[in-house]
Amino acid sequence: MMELKFSLNGKKVSTIIEADSLLIDVVRDLGCLSVKRGCETSNCGLCTVFVNDKPVLSCSVLAARVEGQNVTTLEGLQEEAAEFGAFLADQGAEQCGFCNPGFMMNAIAMFRENPHPEEEEILSYLAGNLCRCSGYEGQLRSIQTYLAFKDSQKGGV
């Protein structure tokens, strides 16, 4: 048992963990239920969260490693999630929704890192986010229409 202090979605939190506690379980215990587990082998991308604004698989990070760090889940990105998510919704591509939080996290990370990704860059950046419902095509459309919308907001590129 040990005490863990870190910042979760901008708020300082303190909690008791065990040495082998995983970040996914700790943030879920702290109420961030958007974070989902789809496998145990770091293959599905559902559990993606940000540590210091970089996407990581929270199922594969020991909670003790985020001591003093900034952790962000989709609960802390509601505005961005709603903005881009509306484009996903307008394609009907959210489907069962279970992979959505991890996908949204990584998509948001991509938008921040590379505001004008080419199609191949999108497919490559998000390759670690599995989805069994959509065949990915609607997700791609939603990203492309969202990017076009962002460009039009800025008066075009």
């Binding site: 999630a81 709603a82 998510g85 509306a86 996903l88 307008d90 009907g92 959210e94 929704g97 959505n100």
Partner: peptide, 22 residues
């Protein structure tokens, strides 16, 4: 008509609406 799913915005914003969340 291509109407948005009723639960879409809950799902894309990661709301706790699945068995394991309850």
């Amino acid at each position: 008509q291509p109407i948005r799913k009723k639960d879409a915005m809950s799902l894309v914003t990661g709301k706790p609406v699945y068995t394991g969340d309850m």
